[in-house]
Each structure stands twice: as C-alpha cells, then as structure tokens.
Design a protein around this nucleic acid. Sequence first.
DNA 1: CGCTGAATTGAAACCTATCAATGTATGTGG
DNA 2: CCACATACATTGATAGGTTTCAATTCAGCG
Lengths: 233, 233
Amino acid sequence: MVTDTQFREAWAGTADCAHCPTRDLSLFAHVRSEDLLPQSCSVNHYKLDRGITVYRSGERGHDLFCLRAGMLKLERFLPDGSRRIVRLVKPNDIFGLEVLLKPEYRHDAVVLQDAMLCRISAELVHDLAERNPVLHRDIMDRWQAALNEADDWLTELVSGHARQRVARLLVRLCDHNKHCSLLSREDMGALLSVTTETASRAVAEFKRAGLLEEIGQNRYRCDTQGLEAISAG
Amino acid sequence: MVTDTQFREAWAGTADCAHCPTRDLSLFAHVRSEDLLPQSCSVNHYKLDRGITVYRSGERGHDLFCLRAGMLKLERFLPDGSRRIVRLVKPNDIFGLEVLLKPEYRHDAVVLQDAMLCRISAELVHDLAERNPVLHRDIMDRWQAALNEADDWLTELVSGHARQRVARLLVRLCDHNKHCSLLSREDMGALLSVTTETASRAVAEFKRAGLLEEIGQNRYRCDTQGLEAISAG
DNA sequence: CGCTGAATTGAAACCTATCAATGTATGTGG
DNA sequence: CCACATACATTGATAGGTTTCAATTCAGCG
C-alpha cells in the first residue's frame, strides 16, 4: 500500500474542487460550489508511478479516490495464490467507494500507467451528502457504473475463445483515435482468464495481421473493425 | 416480461411492510414504522412460477423487487445470441435496483425456483429516503452487495478448470444443511462459461463419486468438503 | 405408452495450458 | 561504451482439457 510517507512524497498539491477543470465529470458535479471551498473541502491530489499499490484488499482505510489521469487495475487473489483483475479504472472513475460503507478495501489497487489521483475522505463525502442530498444520487450512479463494468466483463471478457477475448479487450482499451497502450501479457491473462502465453500469442498474431500497428513506446494504432470482427467470432 | 395482467394473476396480496416478518433483512429495515403503514407504503407481493421472466434487459420499468423465496437468475445476451448469467438472486436479495437511477432494466430476470417477491416502486423508495436518510446507506449496501457478488464470480466462477468451477458453484448453492437444488446444465454452462455437456459431465462425475447424493426431486446432499477439495484444484 | 425435453455419454477435432527455449528491451556496473 | 543481468514477450512442442456433433438414456406428462 502507499504509506503516509509515500503519499507525502507523491503529493502534488491541494485540490481546489470548486474550480476543478473536470468538476462536471467528478463525484462533486452537483455539490454547491460554496461547499467545495478549500476550508471545508480538503482534498489532496497525488502523482503515482506505474507499479505503485494504492491500497490492498483487506486493508483498513477511510479514503476513496478519483483517477484524474493514467490507469489502474483492481485485482483480487484466489486462495491458491492466483490473481484475477476484476476492473480497470480509467480517468474520472471513482475507486475505493466501498469505504463509504466500511473502512476496508476490497481489492488491490495497482497503478498500470502513471497516475494522477485525488484522495477524498469518506467523512467529507458523508458531510457533503448531508448538505447536498443530490450527491446520494451521484454516488449511486458510480456504484451502478462499477456494476455495469463488472457485468460487461462477465459477459464479454470471460467467454468465447482466447483470441476473441483479447480482441474485445483491445477494443475497450482504444481511445477515440483508435490508439491504445497494451497491458502486460500477464495482466491480460489475469483479466481474461487465460495464460500469459495464450495472451501473448493472440497479441503477436494481431500484430502480424496488421490489426495492431506500433506507433511508439507501447502505443498502438488498432484496426478496431478488424478486431471487432474477431470479437464476434 | 410479466405483463400487468400476469402480475394481477400472480398477485398474492398487499404487503404490510411495517410488520413484515423479515423486515430486519429487508431494504426497509431502518425506515420508521410509521412511514411503512399501508396507506403511504404501497407494496404488493406476488407468486411467480419457475420459468417466468420478471423483466427483460432494455425494458422500461419503475419497480424494483425483493425476493422473499425461491431463486432467480439475472442474465444478459451477447451480440451473437449467446447467453451469460451474471448473478443469482436469493431470498432477501434486492434486484432491479438500477431503476432508482434510470427507468430501464439491465438484465433479464428469470425465475429459477418458484418465487415469492415484493414489488416496490422507485418513487416509493425515493420518498422514503427523503424522510429517512438512513435508507440511502441501506441502498448503497445493496449496491455493494451486488458488486461483491459480481466480483466473487469474476474471481471464482470463471477461472480454473470446468470441474473446479462446477464444484465452486455447487458449494455456493448449498444451504446450511449442505442441501441444494441444481440448476439445469444449460444454466450452469451459461453461468460458468462452459458448454452444457461439460457441465453435465462434471455433475455426473460428482454423482458417481458420491459427492452429490440425490435425496428427492432435484434435491441433493452435497459433500461440501470433497467439493471444496476439487474447487482448490 | 409414446412424446418431449433434458441429461448423459461417446468420439474426434480443436484449443489451451504447460514446459522449455529463444528473442528483445532496459538498466547497471565495470 | 560494452558486457551482463533482468524482466518480459515470443515461439515451439506436447499433453491434456473442452468443444462439438451425434447418439443414447432418462424423466415427466398427456
């Protein structure tokens, strides 16, 4: 987990939520601006490098997070030690919501791409919700969003042949320009319930077929049409 | 879906939520009793037979449900027509929560074992929440419960060999007496991402090995220890 | 008693996991 | 700057598991 010391080192400033450039996309979109002034709304943000674990499953904690940039994975461990990624966190997603109910995290949260994130205490959220009942709805929206994502995965990413799953994942990773950064093959495996080698074979095959074209350091241009054709079977 | 006519036929009475025998386990556990009197809290309950579809994915709706007895599945369809079960609903679980945010269901909800359920309008929940802020917390608890279930499935039921998955499912289906009713092999397949035949082979093997002993019409006594050994690999 | 749908079983083709080896990029110390 | 170590990706070969397609058995029901 990130220790207090590490948080201090990774500290990137105090957030000014009332004037957040992406406030409309944040959890506090509908909270009154006067409730978000720094004196009553204390939120810090941090820059965390790839590989850092923000929190671990079972660990006690009172903060939830909003990812501003980069990417994270939420993962769980099985009794036999194997690992499964259950969600990817993208910019403007909230993670660690579970601390609103119980001060304990339910996943390991690990940075996949250098991240910028806001740390928000559960207490603050509860206080704001009391004065801004509309926030309850926004919180529920976030919960539903997480559930939708989980359901999507259950339907799309764990059924069908390995190459279909990999293709579906790649399509999901693409941005609006059809560009994407790949996960490590091991992470792909942990996400799709296949082995590292199988994930690697599928990716390599897509590269050879020209469906993935390298345009930089782990940046690829994707032939989303072709990949979708494979997704469908 | 269940039409209004069918709901009328399946109608089993008006619920008296204030005196519900399982109120402590219900969504309204912490709502003031005076707010649950029949004149202000209109909830009907229904008896639905196996095979009935309560609602369909994409269908418009304003009611959520609490399952009192029996079992349901929540399923989704993939573009290619294949089917995946993403959750099982057990007594005292809430389903259809998503209508609190948007009047549209996100799964097909189908009765697996003859069910008794309460139908609660989203409007009622919103009204009660306004007067009983504590209800917000209970709603979030339900959302988190659904998410936990989804995550559990993502970690346990879709990884490992087919016989492991079937074994894990059977353990989950067992009640406190180690008794359970099996799903159809087709449903098991849709739930575990394996084919009907593979699910059947695993179940048949467990029967032969004495891990499942038939004690009645689709009722089995399970050797949970043995099944857990198989779950582990 | 035959009908129907579900469960089971068999055999072959196919796919994936496994184990092992090779290739490739990055970073470190001499 | 190069040699080397390390981590990760890729590839190959084989064993093993799952799907597929087909046939058979079984159970409930009119």
